[in-house]
Design a protein around this nucleic acid. Structure first.
Lengths: 231, 231
DNA sequence: GTATTGTCTTTTGTATACACTTTGTGCACA
DNA sequence: TGTGCACAAAGTGTATACAAAAGACAATAC
């Protein structure tokens, strides 16, 4: 099963990038990675090409692969774009979700809840990522999904400390995020697009506040609502 | 210069896909293509992986690469998403464009004009593609660009007959599109976001009407304006 | 006549060797 | 001491050979 090793390399690299085990901008050495995953350089290079296409890594000719960087302008762009796309995806997800996708989303939410209960911040972040990717799948819009997937890469990396309670009140925020997920599920189940969008924007505000507090001491008041309704 | 052959394969495949020389859903044979471009299978496979990441082709395990298909549900999704993203991109492009990018856009527009004057439908379609990709670059938002690029792939393929006048009044539509491009350029130059968005939506309506007439005899009235302002 | 199985062909996936590019280091020389 | 060049080392890019999987087709069993 050499095919499996390649798939492992692919998913494990994603995992390590999302959890910042591989830091943004760090070099990825082909020979090291190929040895690590037990495949030759050829399939590993194909994995890197694929990851580059999905926005996880950046390739430079004759200079190898680097983990996608996260600089300050990218951050500004992220805050500008995320609420708009999240809202659009939520609306479509409420309209188009299938029962099968809903079952899957509930399963992911269970994983998420368990990870939080176990205070496993890494698994919680990955489950949160999977939750929002699952909503993207329900939207059934490959164009917007391409955008969403890239947003989620950076969102998960930015919020890596989110599910790691520091101050006592942090646990409250985490529980709030968990509860919002539950409400979002019920909105999707009811095909209630308006409610799904509203909940999504609430969820975004919670996450945004937390990220801004982490990134800079005094958060600037960003106009997420305006951005979402601007068009 | 073996590096160059790989680059040629990459750009020529894109060209052939956008111009429908390679039809949606058609199989891409690795050995045939590698012989054609004078490279071995290894680099050609990497090109295909890259094209897959960008949405030009679809890879299936053990079953090779196919040109990205365009089915009816995809078409519906396209009409749903395009105006929203085009408008968002136009707004950002007007706000963030650099003078260098503007010079580039004008050069592309010159190419576009010449292609139309020469009645070269293929080159006109490719120049039109480059024009809108250039606007995407001005927006300077990698998240939305990922979405835009995929929309443009399908838009260029759908509108392949646009720049091929059939009836006498078609030439008028083509000239109108050309003029709209000029106006969009001046809006970007003036950093006039509102005007850029309005012109973009006009431009979209023109293109949409033409595509719908081609795809189905009697076009259904789609709510593009609503879609654009829905969020 | 149909279905199933076994073999043959075609195509994709992987490993490895080698070529080329980039980059770092040391030495000569101004 | 600083600059430039040559060479070495490390890492990326490509070709080819081989392995494995999928598909085609015919023979055989029912």
């Amino acid at each position: 099963m050499p095919q499996k090793a390649k798939e492992t390399a692919y998913s494990d690299l994603i995992r390590r990038i999302l959890t910042l085990v591989l830091e943004p901008g760090s070099d990825l050495d082909e020979v090291t990675l190929s040895a690590e995953y037990g495949v030759s350089r050829t399939p590993l290079r194909e994995v890197l090409q694929r990851l580059a296409g999905e926005g996880y890594v950046q390739l430079t000719s004759h200079r190898g692969a680097k983990v996608a960087s996260m600089d300050v302008p990218a951050l500004r762009t992220f805050f500008q774009t995320a609420p708009m796309i999240y809202a659009a995806i939520a609306r479509l997800a409420a309209e188009n979700r299938t029962s099968h996708e809903l079952v899957n989303l509930k399963a992911v939410q269970d994983t998420f809840r368990k990870a939080i209960r176990d205070a496993n911040a890494t698994e919680a972040a990955l489950a949160n990522h999977a939750f929002h990717a699952g909503i993207g799948a329900m939207a059934n819009n490959p164009y917007l999904s391409a955008c969403l997937d890239r947003l989620l890469i950076d969102h998960t990396r930015l919020g890596r400390t989110f599910y790691q309670p520091r101050a006592p009140q942090d646990q409250g925020l985490i529980d709030q995020a968990l509860a919002q997920h539950e409400e979002m599920i019920s909105a999707f189940e009811a095909h209630n697009a308006e409610r799904a969008v509203a909940l999504t924007l609430e969820h975004w505000d919670l996450s945004r506040d937390r990220i801004e507090r982490f990134v800079r001491p005094d958060p600037l008041p960003l106009d997420t609502k305006d951005a979402a309704y601007a068009l």
